[in-house]
Design a protein around this nucleic acid. Structure first.
Length: 462
DNA sequence: TGAAATGTTGGGGCG
DNA sequence: ACGCCCCAACATTTC
């Protein structure tokens, strides 16, 4: 619609949430042609911010700042309010006499309830999109019209699903909310990755050099074989469609990477259909597992002091950087749930606190995969051997040495299980088990038998 | 997007 | 030469 047919005073508010970019942002693009004036808005919710770990907090606020700069470069300004969106968004829309509110939808239960409540209170129209996913929930279904409970059939349908089509940009002028509603952005420290759409594109450019080797290197935590784009997807500083358009599926590595974006869609679709998956086993019989109450074991896991180097390396990488290699996420997850027999929800909560890329649907979906409680999850009897995984994927111990400096003297033969090293070997390298580095807190063979028995009991198997 | 237990096979040491 | 045993190496099944 040409803008000269728009009402003189029409005003569209674009509420940015987990889509902190202008590029390929359907809520933003649609608004620029829907009204004469567009007001870009971020509402920082202190209640959310208070519960978020430092890595995500800093990156979120830095991303907001980067978005503000993007909009500033267009000659506009990003309006920033601090408070509860449930009351602020309707109030602001009233104050600016908005004709429409535009935003991209979220799959998470909390956000959805909030958005529904707000939509109910608005005195204007609201226009929503799925700018954060490649496929819209409800568009990738089995022949029976249901969301597949198994990934592979979902993937087969996903490949043929319609991709997002961006609305054409208009030429609206940029506006702002009244000063009384604005607040300065809360203070934050420099994030651990380069924020904003600019930072996302820097990661994407680097990834173009590695993506063709993805299938060969993605499981090697000692090699930079992953995209480093997860946090950008989390905050929407880049659109998944931009990744798809840039990377394509022309080589096995590229196809494998895009397949990961389909997993992401799948878990988001699943959460919409099964909101209780955040804290309930999708296969409810698995909630009968008698998890161990083991605060010391849980703490050792969080601290990276389990005595299993590959596990401790991963947990230390998480605590120090807010990120962990995906293969190692599986290993530490399996260790918590299977070896320590601790409730997967404890691990989910810790990851959600610290991970720079944590997002409810993905975090819960992947934890339920590890715990075997989800659909199409790892079967309960698949118990990772932390030593075997370490030998297989961190053969020379590069990754372990990076995060556990006290083991750097050990060779590739013994570093995966220091307690099996000849005492002289340990001594000459300054390793004193139980002192400079822990003894293993549990014996794997014992733990394996224990978890299999516990799951069998819960599932009523003999 | 496992691992361990169990089963099978075949080469070589040895009486 | 032959049978027996051991045990990698590989395959199958079980969890």
């Amino acid at each position: 619609m040409p803008s000269d047919t728009l009402e003189e005073r029409s005003c569209a508010v674009v509420w940015f949430r987990n889509d902190l970019r202008l590029e390929a942002n359907p809520a933003w693009l649609s608004a620029t042609s829907a009204a004469r004036t567009v007001i870009p808005l971020v509402v920082v919710d202190p209640a959310i911010l208070a519960g978020v770990g430092p890595f995500r907090r800093n990156l979120y606020l830095a991303n907001v700042e980067a978005l503000s700069q993007e909009i500033g470069a267009l000659g506009g300004e990003l309006s920033i309010a601090v408070g509860n969106p449930r009351t602020l968004v309707p109030k602001i829309c009233d104050a600016v006499e908005a004709t429409t509110l535009h935003f991209n939808r979220t799959a998470s239960g909390f956000g959805r309830a909030r958005d529904n409540a707000i939509a109910h209170q608005l005195n204007c129209e609201h226009v929503t999109f799925w700018g954060t996913l490649l496929t819209e929930p409800g568009t990738v279904l089995t022949g029976k019209g249901t969301l597949s409970k198994v990934f592979t059939p979902f993937w087969k349908k996903w490949v043929d699903a319609p991709l997002p089509v961006m609305p054409a940009a208009g030429d609206a002028q940029l506006g702002a909310i009244p000063a009384e509603f604005t607040s300065p952005l809360p203070n934050f420290d420099a994030p651990v990755i380069e924020p904003g759409n600019h930072g996302a594109h820097a990661s994407l450019r680097r990834w173009l050099d590695g993506v063709d080797d993805y299938l060969d290197t993605r499981d090697l935590p000692g090699v930079p074989g992953t995209s480093q784009l997860s946090a950008h997807l989390r905050f929407g500083t880049i659109a998944p469609i931009t990744l798809y358009d840039t990377i394509g599926t022309q080589t096995p590595g590229r196809d494998g990477f895009i397949r990961q974006l389909a997993w992401r869609d799948w878990y988001a679709h699943m959460l919409l259909e099964t909101p209780q998956m955040l804290d309930r086993a999708v296969r409810s019989e698995y909630d009968q597992v008698q998890w161990r109450h083991d605060p010391k074991g849980l703490q050792a896991w969080k601290d990276g002091r389990t005595g299993y180097p590959i596990v401790d390396a991963g947990m230390r990488q998480l605590a120090e950087t807010g990120w962990m290699h995906n293969r190692v996420r599986m290993i530490v997850g399996s260790f918590l749930v299977k070896d320590l027999l601790i409730d997967w929800r404890e691990g989910e909560r810790w990851f959600r606190h610290l991970l720079i890329d944590a997002e409810p649907s993905q975090n819960a979906g992947n934890w339920q995969w590890v715990a075997g409680t989800g659909t199409d999850a790892a079967p309960y009897f698949r118990v990772f051997n932390p030593i075997g995984q370490s030998e297989k994927f961190d053969k020379d111990g590069t990754y372990i040495k990076q995060w556990i400096p006290e083991l750097r003297g050990l060779d590739a033969k013994t570093i995966h299980a220091p307690w099996t090293a000849p005492p002289l070997d340990l001594a000459t390298n300054g390793v004193i088990l139980g002192d400079t580095y822990p003894e293993p807190i549990v014996d794997h063979k014992f733990a394996r038998d224990r978890v299999l028995a516990a799951y069998k009991l819960a599932l009523g198997k003999t």
